[in-house]
Simulated scan of single mutants.
Amino acid sequence: MVSLLIAVVVAAVVFDYINGFHDAANAIATVVSTGVLPLRTAVIIAAIFNFVGATTGTAVATTIATGFADAEIVDQTVVLSALLGASAWNLITWWYGIPSSSSHALIGGLAGAVVAHAGAGAFHWATLVKKVLVPLVVSPTLGFVAAFFLMVALLWVVRRARPGTVHRASRRLQLVSACMMAFSHGSNDAQKAMGIITLALVAFVANGGAGVPEWMMPVGDEVPRWVIYTCATAIALGTAAGGRRIIKTMGTKIIRISPLQGFAAETAGAATILVASHAGVPVSTTHVINACIMGVGASNRISAVRWGVATNIVIAWVLTLPLSAAMAFVIELVISRLLA
């Protein structure tokens, strides 16, 4: 039983690492595509701020650990299957350069694994609606609107300034906004892996497990400190590995973005994500920043956004939950049969 728990922790750390390089583009796509920073410098800065952001709270981790399924009906095969299903979907979308949601992949994987293990009634669908499906619509919409109006306001402020002055100032501001975006990404996304490890630890105890040092176990809903720093390190290292394929999609294929637009998109995105993190809502940072990029593009003119690319991204958003759930469902059945 301990060996299976170790496998779950390793899988969670691997998922967190994959999340890092899959979602590195969330923080740095605009700052790289506008030429403000070279890719390697950008990912290192993003990795540092991802780590710092990941250590600032655990509200989202608590939602993941306690909100979607009761620990008494979850075993290690369920958590392992959820992680493997989510990781598989992340790797598929990364390979094709599609900026899908790691968060929704994990939650979808958890739903599929729980249903395969204990039936549809074992999963908390009301929490899925409240904490995932509603924010799936609300958070990108808020990001789009915030970015749109922030961009309009910025254009009004600089309307009489020389283009060269605006360009130079925008490049400096974008350094700040990119750091803010990386910080907010860590504050939300790293907590998903923290929550899934905490769920595994609680389930281990609830199912009569023993042999794990007491300092490693959670007290109530509290996320152990070793889990926080392990996940923060994993997502930072993954971010440092980069994500060139998705950076290209987000930074150049949706719109051709300028430094001022990049600053507006990142600022609006960071603000939206930080509010969600504080509220314990596991939003998709990918969805938010993509919507913000579309928002700044639409503030110029609607045709500035390449809506064909945007439509493909939205399709990936819609498919992430059910397909990651289906993968985890099958994986859980296979693992359970192998261990029977």
Results as ranks from 00 to 15, higher is better:
T41V: 07
P99R: 13
V31F: 06
L173K: 04
G53I: 14
A65W: 01
A264N: 04
H167L: 14
N19A: 13
G308I: 07
V305E: 05
Y96H: 06
A120Q: 00
A116F: 13
H185L: 04
H167W: 14
A182T: 08
W89C: 12
T127S: 02
M1T: 07
D221W: 03
A304F: 14
T30A: 12
I196C: 07
A7I: 13
G119Y: 08
V296G: 04
C292Y: 01
V145I: 15
T230M: 15
A54Y: 13
A71D: 05
A304S: 15
R244L: 10
D70S: 12
A42E: 03
A298T: 04
G238Y: 15
E214W: 05
A310D: 09
P99L: 14
I48Q: 00
T267I: 12
A190W: 11
T252S: 14
I293C: 15
A236I: 05
G85Q: 01
V275R: 00
S299C: 03
P224H: 07
L338I: 06
T34W: 07
T30Q: 10
R244T: 03
V52E: 06
T30L: 11
L128I: 11
A7V: 12
L80C: 05
A190Y: 11
L136R: 06
F148A: 05
G35M: 11
H22E: 07
K253M: 06
A325P: 04
T286Q: 01
P38V: 07
M250F: 05
L321P: 04
G112S: 04
A193N: 11
A340E: 12
N188A: 03
E222G: 00
S102D: 10
T233E: 07
P259F: 10
I331Y: 02
G295I: 15
T93N: 09
A276E: 05
A27N: 01
I64R: 04
I257Y: 03
I28P: 07
G119M: 09
A268V: 08
L84Q: 03
G35S: 13
A268S: 14
K192W: 00
T66G: 00
A326C: 04
A328R: 07
V14I: 06
Y96I: 10
A118I: 03
V129P: 08
R172Y: 13
G20T: 06
A265M: 14
R244W: 10
G297L: 15
V223K: 08
M250H: 09
M294W: 01
A236T: 07
L39N: 09
R225K: 10
T272S: 12
I235K: 10
A264S: 15
A69S: 08
A105I: 15
G109V: 04
I315M: 09
A161R: 12
D221V: 02
N300G: 03
F148E: 08
R40Q: 13
G243N: 10
R245Y: 11
Y229T: 07
I254P: 06
L110N: 05
A325R: 05
I228G: 04
I107M: 04
V14S: 01
C292K: 00
T267K: 10
G119P: 09
